[in-house]
């Protein structure tokens, strides 16, 4: 908690968890999807489902998915903005045992791929992405974050970590999840330093088992 967290964030109301946090979740999910989405199903859980209507959670999520930040005055009109630009959002409710009380599952549908992302708003506008395509990961977006999808082969983690070390970038946290030995895996690496997007292109080639890698800029959506 710093002075700027106490006097802040600057946000569209009314709720830091159900509005500002929801914008951030949509924004992070869009970063993970990697391009402007065309079609998304959103499954609201817990109190997101129960009180979304009173906090503009639906508009907030749609705003984030369109790349808006929590302090963008267009958040309240996000559903109209989506309609105008031909984005399709469908909202559903779902009950999942043990799910975080303020959480949402995004199902992105693209031309030739789909992606599933679950995220939660954990209070005060902070959020966590909890799973990406079924991999249980932990991503807050507060630090510069590198996300990889790869095959679980020896040396992948070391190759990425080694290259980061060579670039002088310290790793703050790291979490990894795999489907099974030798199967698909995913990893989130939080970094202490901002890095240039072009570095990701070099990093991608450090090991042949790396399938997809992207960078989520630190606090890219907040002031």
């Amino acid at each position: 908690m710093s002075l700027l967290d106490i006097i802040g964030p600057v946000m569209v109301g009314p709720s830091s968890s159900h509005t500002a946090g929801a914008v951030r979740l949509g924004w992070l999910a869009r970063q993970c999807w990697g391009e402007p989405p065309k079609e998304v199903d959103l499954f609201l859980r817990g109190s997101f489902a129960a009180t979304y209507w009173g906090h503009g959670t639906d508009r907030a999520l749609a705003a984030g998915l369109q790349g808006l930040s929590p302090d963008d005055p267009r958040v309240p009109e996000a559903l109209d903005l989506a309609r105008d630009s031909g984005l399709a959002f469908r909202f559903h409710g779902e009950e999942i045992d043990g799910a975080h009380p303020n959480s949402v599952r995004f199902h992105f549908i693209g031309q030739d791929r789909e992606m599933e992302i679950v995220g939660a708003s954990i209070g005060g506008g902070s959020v966590r992405i909890q799973s990406l395509d079924g991999f249980c990961l932990n991503l807050s977006g507060e630090l510069e974050s590198l996300v990889t999808f790869h095959r679980d082969l020896p040396g992948v983690v070391a190759a990425v970590a080694g290259e980061l070390a060579r670039l002088g970038v310290n790793i703050a946290t790291m979490n990894l999840h795999r489907g099974g030995r030798g199967e698909r895996a995913a990893m989130v690496i939080e970094l202490d330093k901002r890095i240039d997007g072009s570095i990701v292109d070099d990093l991608r080639s450090v090991h042949p088992a790396l399938e997809r890698m992207f960078l989520i800029p630190a606090g890219g959506d907040v002031r």
Binding site: I7, V12, G13, P14, S15, S16, T19, G56
Partner: peptide, 21 residues
């Protein structure tokens, strides 16, 4: 009230109490 109506405010320390300061 502006906060309740989805206006842009500064949480201080929270959105619910954003009018006092």
């Amino acid at each position: 009230t502006y906060n309740a109506a989805m206006g842009r405010i500064v949480a201080a320390p929270t959105a619910g109490s954003c009018g006092i300061l």
